[in-house]
Design a protein around this nucleic acid. Structure first.
Length: 1199
RNA sequence: GGGCGUGUAGCUCAGUUGGUUAGAGCGCGUCGCUGAUAACGACGAGGUCCCAGAUUCGAGUUCUGGCACGCCCA
């Protein structure tokens, strides 16, 4: 890395020396990574980011929220994308005049941290953690949070993501925790927090619940018993035949805890009779045959009944223990009457006939859907009359005394014995093995997980479902389908938020419970607890701090210290208030960031009022149920309609540092809310797609997978055949390059541009070495070459933009106009006006797209502008830059035009590729020294100058470019290379609107096609066959069903005749088959041309270009001269001539054509090659080069 | 099993309110240029727009039903 900053205007020397003042030719192919490192150093040194914010100190805000990543994990390529997207819009908005603060943030709580620490300590169960000690464990967690901080900061900086890392919010900080506490207290006081059961995936051996993500990791295919069990129905009378429900399950160990059997109400059930035993069974009609086939028995249908008719029927439970102990309890229903608590048939929608018997065994303790049915059932009973949950299994996964015969047995190993018991009791109809995916603990992969009920705290989010939906409807989602699709559906099926976690490292639930009465209250800050009567236990923290003064003060609000704090109960004399033991879901932490990042409402009322809601956030799609939801839910509950925000209690509690603005916070926010009740907490959200990798994979002779990241790398493994793969990134396969390698090889701009310009951000994005590498020549290098071209000639000609004495510090086009050599665009040549028009059209498009958060199409507009600049403007203007007279008006026009476009383009690309833009800015503004802004990122984004847009010219130029392209195609077809001049081309157009313009500007075509003359005509009957087709868009609505007839008539008619009719009368009349007549004017039809056979011609959409293929002697000689020029030029380069060096040329040949060509075109040859002399002889001590039919000698002339 | 998304050239992707010759970049082929030159340019080949129905004068685009893949949830 260079120690020096980029070649910015030097601060030590305010007046640049003459040498510094001039442009200097730029390196042909720069090292982008090295360039970027220089720019980074420059930004740091000059504090450009800080300056960019300071310039907008009083500007309107554009609010950005950083979704906090966890610094506990290594940053990976996916983070590059989110961070790049999070960077480009704030940069853009800043240039557009907004103040966009970018407060970083870190998510620091939760199980992943505990797991990391556990790994390091070699422990993983909760027991082991308790044994180790919660206090040292928590301290280790706090330290572990910053494990990869260095890598994160490096990545963030290197990618060019401008964000205030120094001011980052951190979820474990006391102020953050207290904001979260405040919000929870608010919910608690409003009765929105409650305790209930939650069925979780439970790791019995470790005594802990697993998160969905963890469960997902541990699925693997296993064979479980699949049993069809008989539940004998309790018959209405003894006379009735014995009937049993056929119930299917793959978890026999849950049968002792059976509570119900479920049917689907609208399904048909068959009563079948076993041909051998005469027993009767009930199962889904659709599954009778399947089961009969399995059992190899005949099952005769006796009767068919509906599922609904089975509902309410009672049966004998498969194991009688509960039944024996509880007898058969009943309870009063809300609707009046009595109902049995257990062992009856209920209806449930999730029942299907896809597998099993169409009758489902419900053990609500061990299944989430089962539990929902149970809750439904409970709700039917009157207060105090509802059934209790049956659960014969302990948290250790072993049967309890509720199922005495197997007490202490691990449930999963009880399946066999249970099945045997069922068979012995005649209750097993059929048994087989069933292959399915079942989750195991990812930390102990021999331990199967079970679903198990746990006490949990919930937030009553369901109460806010409609408000959240209403809120969601106002969010600007990118892509839009998220709103009514994935996110909308998710909100639609909202269930109460299971908030608590029985873990250690998290925000403690701020609820204290009275040990005597069980009554509870919530607190909103540490100080509020301290202010309670007769507080005890604070010494635990104080001692810890004394013993280790390094301890982060924030830990005082964490376990185990906060757990030790108790106070006198206001509910019962002499009783103590103790905190509940749980911590909360860390998604709640992140969702609280809009206010918690400021410590609001305990402090920073102004910041919060100003920075809420966000104008823009972005994360990947996996956050729909994560951060997108947690933010929306929390904001809706706290700030939405009907919420009451009372921050006075926080002030009253004497919260340390409660700001003076705090009292006003409530009203301020309310005002803001009434202005814009919706949407919040974020107005716009870009949902990013998945990040995939692409690599080459082969299998070696040992059957091991070999991965190569590029085609080239595959060559290192001779003999293996590689296939290209696209898929998820895998640490084990190492099928992707680390971001830092990409930065070192190709640079951050290459990666950024690839992300921004190659696909809409919500598509899955492929992160591959080659894809990123390819964005260099496609865009970065092409732009650099164009810039380099400019500097080469600006240096030669001494172009000096500082002659614009009124130039402002951003070099706006208007201010450059003060230069004496600067002519208004209207006086410049066509091509200058054209590129300026294209520039201003592009500016309009780019700003329009970016304002709509559409980076993809903005980039497309930039690319096409660059294409026009590089492939047409510069190419067609080359000879203007080569022209001898360095002071001609035309040359000045060319310089001013190219300079302006480059300067504007540099600003346009600044948010996207900030490094290259910075370097270009510094190079382009070098002559101005420190009269201009030090960084392009301090500039305003260009505004489109409508007066420079000339749509007519754009259209005409498009036709012209098409003509040139067609001419080349025709030449290629006729095998007449471009260096050979031709006498004429004729261009046949379908309409005359462009002809006048084309005629007056045909030098471009003549040069481009190397022809002596161009003629334009609409009357090309000799070369062209005309045909006429309807203009469907216009005629469709007009004639409707007649369209096919019109098309047919026009197609059959002689096109040439129709055209002449149209030209003379202005209309064409058609007699339709239905007898009516249709008059068509020129807008109703479209004329198409087709080149006739036998001409060297090429056809496009609107014209045909016909070549005159006759090659005269004269033309042939000119062609030879041009060949010779090319040979001399090539030799100039070979002997190392500078652009301006003069040469002498000698040609030795016997070829009469060559001699003649030189004779005729001596002047042109000398001029083009800067030859002082051209002799028909060898040159002394100069080596000859072979040319066709002769030898060529070229030598530099020294002055 | 449910929800959502995707399916267009060898590859990666665009494709506006439905309008009749479906585009770009890369790759490939041919050629050109040789004073932007370890670049650059032009031209060309390459398509059952996943399948099947429906609506319509007209469907890559709208609707219905499938198929495949991906993600999320169960």
């Amino acid at each position: 890395m260079s120690a020096k900053p980029g070649p910015a205007p030097s601060s030590t020397d305010p007046t640049p020396s003459a040498a510094e003042k001039a442009f200097r030719a730029a390196a042909a192919s720069p090292s982008f990574p090295a360039l970027e490192e220089e720019v980074l150093a420059f930004w740091d040194e000059q504090q450009i980011y800080e300056k960019s914010l300071a310039r907008r100190a009083d500007a309107p805000t554009f609010v950005f929220f950083e979704g906090p990543p966890t610094a506990n994990g290594m940053p990976h390529p996916g983070h590059c994308l989110t961070r790049a997207i999070k960077d480009v819009f704030p940069r853009y908005k800043t240039m557009r005049g907004y103040r966009c603060e970018r407060k970083a943030g870190w998510d620091t709580h939760g199980l992943p941290v505990e797991v990391e620490v556990g790994k390091a300590l070699g422990i993983h169960s909760k027991e082991e953690i308790e044994e180790y000690g919660v206090e040292p464990f928590i301290q280790k967690c706090q330290q572990s949070v910053w494990r990869y901080m260095q890598q994160w900061e490096t990545l963030t900086r290197r990618l060019g993501f401008w964000v205030d890392l120094g001011e980052a919010y951190v979820t474990y900080r006391q102020s953050y925790v207290e904001s979260v506490w405040w919000s929870l207290k608010n919910l608690f006081d409003r009765g929105l927090l409650y305790q209930g059961h939650k069925i979780v995936w439970w790791w019995a051996q470790g005594g802990t619940a697993l998160s969905a993500g963890e469960v997902g990791q541990g699925y693997r295919e296993v064979a479980d018993p699949s049993v069809y069990v008989l539940f004998p129905l309790i018959a209405a009378s003894d006379a009735a035949p014995k009937r049993s429900l056929v119930v299917w399950t793959t978890t026999p160990w849950t049968l002792p805890s059976n509570m119900y059997a479920a049917v689907k109400a609208d399904l048909n059930y068959a009563v079948v009779e076993d041909g051998e035993t005469g027993e009767q069974f009930v199962l889904a009609a659709a599954l009778v045959e399947t089961l009969a086939a399995k059992m190899k028995r005949e099952l005769n249908v006796v009767e068919t009944v509906s599922g609904a008719s089975l509902v309410g029927r009672r049966y004998e439970p498969p194991f009688a223990d509960y039944h024996d102990r509880l007898s058969d309890p009943q309870g009063a229903l809300k609707s009046g009457g009595q109902e049995h608590w257990y062992w009856r048939v209920v209806a449930a929608d999730f029942v299907t006939t896809d597998s099993g018997s169409g009758l489902v065994h419900l053990a609500p303790a061990f299944g989430e859907v089962d539990y929902e049915v149970f809750s439904e059932q409970r709700s039917r009973f009157a207060e105090g009359e509802a059934p209790d949950l049956l659960c014969a299994v302990g948290p250790d996964g072993k049967f309890t005394a509720e199922f005495p015969e197997m007490e202490g047995e691990w449930v999963k190993s009880a399946d066999k014995a249970l099945t045997r018991q069922l068979r012995d009791g005649g209750k097993l109809l059929y048994q087989e093995q069933y292959l399915h995916d079942y989750p195991f603990c990812w930390r102990a992969d021999q331990d199967p997980l079970i679903q198990y009920p746990r006490e949990s705290w919930f937030i009553r989010t369901t109460q806010f479902r409609d408000l959240m939906l209403k809120n969601n409807s106002q969010i600007g989602w990118q892509p839009e389908h998220i709103r009514d699709g994935r996110f909308g559906n998710f909100l639609d099926s909202n269930v109460d938020w299971a908030l608590s976690r029985e873990r250690y490292w998290g925000t403690p639930l701020p609820i204290w419970v009275c040990e005597t009465t069980g009554r509870m209250e919530a607190v909103c800050s540490y100080d509020e607890v301290l202010a309670k009567p007769d507080v005890q236990g604070t010494e635990v923290w104080e001692e810890a701090k004394r013993a280790n003064p390094e301890l982060a003060d924030d830990l005082c609000v964490h376990k185990p210290y906060i757990d030790a704090v108790t106070y006198a109960s206001p509910f019962a004399e002499g009783a103590r208030m103790k905190r509940v033991s749980e911590v909360i879901d860390c998604w709640y932490d992140s969702g609280a960031m809009p206010f918690a990042q400021w410590g609001w409402p305990h402090q920073n009322a102004d910041q919060f009022a100003e920075q809420f809601p966000a104008d823009f956030i972005s994360e990947a799609i996996d956050q729909t149920r994560g951060w997108f939801y947690s933010q929306l839910a929390i904001s809706t509950m706290l700030f939405g309609e009907g919420a009451s925000i009372d921050v006075s209690d926080s002030a009253a509690s004497g919260s340390a540092g409660a700001p003076s603005g705090s009292a006003g916070a409530s009203t301020q926010l309310a005002d803001r809310r009434s202005e814009q009740a919706y949407p919040h907490p974020y107005r716009n959200c870009i949902v990013l797609g998945l990040m995939l990798s692409q690599w080459f994979e082969a299998t070696d002779e040992d059957g091991k997978k070999v991965v190569a990241l590029t085609q080239e790398e595959t060559a290192e493994h001779a003999g293996l055949s590689f296939t290209k793969k696209t898929g998820k990134m895998s640490k084990q396969l190492r099928n992707y390059r680390s971001p830092s390698e990409i930065f070192d090889r190709y640079g951050a701009d290459a990666m950024r541009w690839y992300f921004f310009a190659n696909q809409a951000p919500w598509n899955s994005i492929i992160y591959s070495d080659s894809a990123i590498r390819d964005s260099i020549p496609e865009f970065l290098l092409r732009l650099w070459n164009t810039f380099s071209f400019f500097t080469i000639y600006a240096e030669i000609d001494g172009f000096d933009p500082t002659t614009a004495t009124d130039a402002d510090d951003q070099l706006t086009p208007e201010s450059l106009a003060s230069a004496p050599t600067y002519r208004p665009a209207s006086q410049r040549s066509e091509i200058d006006r054209w590129i300026l028009s294209e520039l201003n059209v592009a500016i309009g498009t780019i700003t329009d797209r970016m304002d709509r958060l559409d980076n993809y199409n903005a980039c497309a507009a930039i690319t096409s502008l660059l294409d026009g600049l590089s492939n047409w403007y510069v190419r067609r203007s080359r000879d203007r830059f080569w022209a001898k007279d360095s002071q001609s008006a035309d040359k000045h026009d060319a310089y001013w035009t190219l300079y302006e476009v480059l300067v504007q383009l540099t600003k346009l690309i600044a948010p996207f590729v900030p490094f290259l833009a910075e370097r270009l800015w510094q190079e382009l503004t070098r002559p101005f020294g420190d009269r201009v802004l030090a960084s392009v990122h301090l500039c305003d984004y260009p505004a489109s100058d409508e007066t420079r847009v000339d749509t007519q010219l754009s259209t005409s130029m498009k036709v012209l470019r098409e003509i040139a392209s067609l001419g080349r195609a025709a030449r290629a077809d006729a095998k007449l290379k471009v260096r050979l001049p031709l006498a004429a081309v004729e261009v046949v157009l379908s309409e005359d609107t462009q002809i006048a313009w084309l005629q007056s500007h045909d030098s471009l075509v003549r040069e481009e096609l190397n022809v002596k003359s161009v003629a334009y005509t609409t009357d090309g009957g000799d070369y062209v066959q005309y045909s006429v087709v309807p203009n469907f868009k216009r005629l469709g609505p007009k004639v409707g069903k007649q369209i096919p007839a019109v098309k047919k008539l026009l197609g059959e008619a002689d096109g040439n005749e129709l055209l002449s009719q149209l030209q003379t009368t202005g209309t064409v009349s058609l007699s339709l088959p239905d007898g009516s007549t249709l008059e068509l004017d020129s807008d109703d039809i479209e004329v198409r041309l087709q080149a006739r056979e036998g001409w060297a011609a090429a056809q496009g959409a609107s014209c045909v270009v016909v070549l005159n293929t006759e090659v005269t002697e004269e033309l042939r000689r000119e062609g030879i001269a041009k060949d010779l020029i090319r040979a001399i030029q090539s030799q100039r380069k070979e002997i190392g001539c500078e652009y301006t060096d003069q040469i002498e040329v000698g040609v030795v040949t016997e070829d009469a054509d060559i001699r003649k060509a030189i004779e005729c075109h001596r002047e042109m040859i000398c001029q083009e090659t800067l030859a002082r002399q051209l002799v028909m002889d060898g040159l002394p001590s100069v080596e000859a080069v072979e040319i066709e039919n002769g030898e060529l000698f070229v030598t530099r002339v020294n002055d």
